[in-house]
Nucleic acid binder design. Structure first.
Lengths: 339, 339
DNA sequence: GGCCTGTAGTAAAACGTTTTAGCATGTTTC
DNA sequence: GAAACATGCTAAAACGTTTTACTACAGGCC
């Protein structure tokens, strides 16, 4: 059960392992191996179903054809769907994916990076946590190909693929205003990271632009690591505190879900008594009664872009980093309509 | 940026690489390395933050400390949640996870196994597809540690961790009967694999046991690879064909979701006009109006068991295979109540 | 015949470990 | 005072590749 090695092929073909390696790596021409020998080796390799040992190859070349994917939470629908796209796309280039979830915990993220590093992954796709900038810079100064996703560090010149979160929130809020809601709040995560900051900024900008008075009391920022129970408690407390509130924008998918739950347990009628827009699409949003308006991310496109950008870094080291910002789509449903 | 190797430590400590290896692998005692030298090496290794090169180690030992996880669809909530548990548990043993989705396509599954094989994973966690039995046996005859999950092959003596699907379906159906529903159908996937077969069997057994007449027209088996649109069309066609139908059991989570959608587009009132039970829990089921009764799988326990069984195979090769069958929990909600 | 050029290939080192076999040296033992 | 044993360590091979630097030979040219 040892597996076929280059030596076995060499022996059968009556040539040296070197020759086999050259042929199998497509360097037959370049290395002046004759057609005859070339063909023979190809044939034997095919017959024996030879697959190069990736460990040995990796040891020698330093390339493992593996990429590390660090997400916030693989159990979250958004990240899981994205992981699948990434896996499929990476496969097209012959890469496998090692993954891990940070739970938005910087220590866990560092641990993951550590493991991926000594597993010698060739490139990194990272959903960074708050204080991961130093580690990112470390990877960069080691010229490791990497792409940030979902969020990025403005002060670091790295490749990234993100949503236009500002536009997402701006559109959502503008839509609520257009629907006639007057006092609109946002429930978000207490985070200074770009994705959350942009969503908040987009929300505020939309209010300002439409001359809707804005003040701090319209913003609720919750800790990321609360459990569902606590999310609900906090959200209910907040919603009942704001006077004359008639609409709310939930800035992440899980907040949206918690929000729906909270509002229902308050007995308010979604849409009529309180307008609601969520983030990321979800079966629940589509099928809820009433259905939930949301800012939808183009997951397939995000995944493709991520892998494309990463492959560019892998294949053209030193080429300038690329930033991709994709447009969200506002999926209008019943939760943002009074009728 | 080369990374610290055992040689660097050896040089600094003024000993041979061999000694360093012995010490760092905890064989100092056994190999009679003095306390002094041992300590010194440990210290230097810590100072240099030495991490063994897993490729080199793997090449030499044949162990990569990596396991392959093959699921049906990582974007499916059930598999994603499970993947997360598996990743966390495996990490406790120092293993990383390479994953892939089969889409229930045997060719894709074979491809994944192929890749995992020549990546030299130490063990496999496999959600098998229909005709994967030959490959499983091949892995077995190569003494590869493996655990099947979600489903298994009755004619193969392998380890597996599955739900008691029979009981899940039986309980769901019995519950519907107890709630007073008289004509109950099942919508399932056209699959002869154990998980689907057991669910169907459990359904039929419950009907028989309660003297409810059963016939083939109460069973709808859909092709796995339909798109959402087609699922809906087929389900609607089926539900409207069965005379006097008053309850339906959807045998997978995505069928349940499609079922809800279909029933609603038919304008039927869930619970009152038609009882409904789904499989696997989901935010949608919890928050739908009315909320959806479902057979819930103990995901954390499944994941832990999978990794535990696999670790047993890894650490005690040749030990008898283990079969774990876990009990589902029927989560009773509004969709199965007429009131 | 000596020199160059081109052709077709190979030997050996290297990647970073682990592991087998063994080498000094000192200490008992009879 | 030699054999036996214990102690503390190391040299070198091996895992399966890739890659650099070569060799061996043939033919052409002066």
């Amino acid at each position: 059960m040892k597996g076929i090695s280059i030596k076995d092929i060499a022996k059968q073909a009556g040539v040296s392992p070197t020759t086999v390696s050259f042929v199998l790596n497509g360097k037959a021409k370049e290395k002046r191996i004759s057609e005859q020998v070339s063909k023979k080796i190809q044939k034997i390799a095919a017959r024996l179903k030879y697959k190069p040992n990736q460990l040995a190859r990796g040891l020698r070349t330093g390339k493992t054809k593996t990429i590390g994917l660090i997400v916030e939470d693989i159990a979250n629908n958004f990240f899981a769907s994205l992981a699948k796209v990434v896996e499929d796309e990476a496969d097209k280039y012959g890469y496998k994916v090692l993954y891990g979830s940070t739970e938005d915990n910087t220590e866990k993220a560092k641990g993951l990076l550590e493991v991926l590093k000594y597993r010698q992954v060739d490139g990194y796709i990272i959903t960074p946590t708050k204080n991961l900038d130093k580690e990112i810079e470390l990877l960069q100064s080691a010229s490791k190909p990497l792409v940030l996703m979902d969020r990025y560090f403005p002060h670091i010149n790295s490749s990234y693929v993100v949503l236009n979160n500002y536009k997402g929130a701006y559109d959502a809020t503008t839509h609520l205003i257009a629907q006639g809601y007057k006092k609109i709040a946002i429930v978000t995560i207490a985070s200074e990271q770009t994705q959350m900051k942009d969503r908040l900024d987009g929300f505020v900008a939309a209010l300002k632009e439409h001359k809707i008075p804005f003040n701090k009391s319209l913003v609720k920022r919750l800790a990321f690591d609360l459990d569902r129970e606590s999310f609900n408690t906090e959200i209910k407390k907040f919603l009942t505190t704001v006077k004359d509130l008639d609409a709310v924008f939930f800035a992440t998918n899980y907040l949206g879900i918690a929000g729906i739950e909270s509002i229902r347990s308050l007995g308010w009628e979604i849409g009529k008594e309180i307008g609601l827009v969520g983030f990321d699409d979800h079966d629940l949003f589509r099928l809820h009664s009433p259905s939930i308006t949301c800012v939808s991310q183009p997951i397939a496109s995000i995944g493709k872009n991520i892998v494309e950008v990463l492959m560019n870094e892998l294949n053209h080291p030193g080429s300038p980093s690329r930033q991709v910002v994709l447009a969200p789509e506002l999926v209008v449903r019943a939760s943002s309509s009074r009728t």
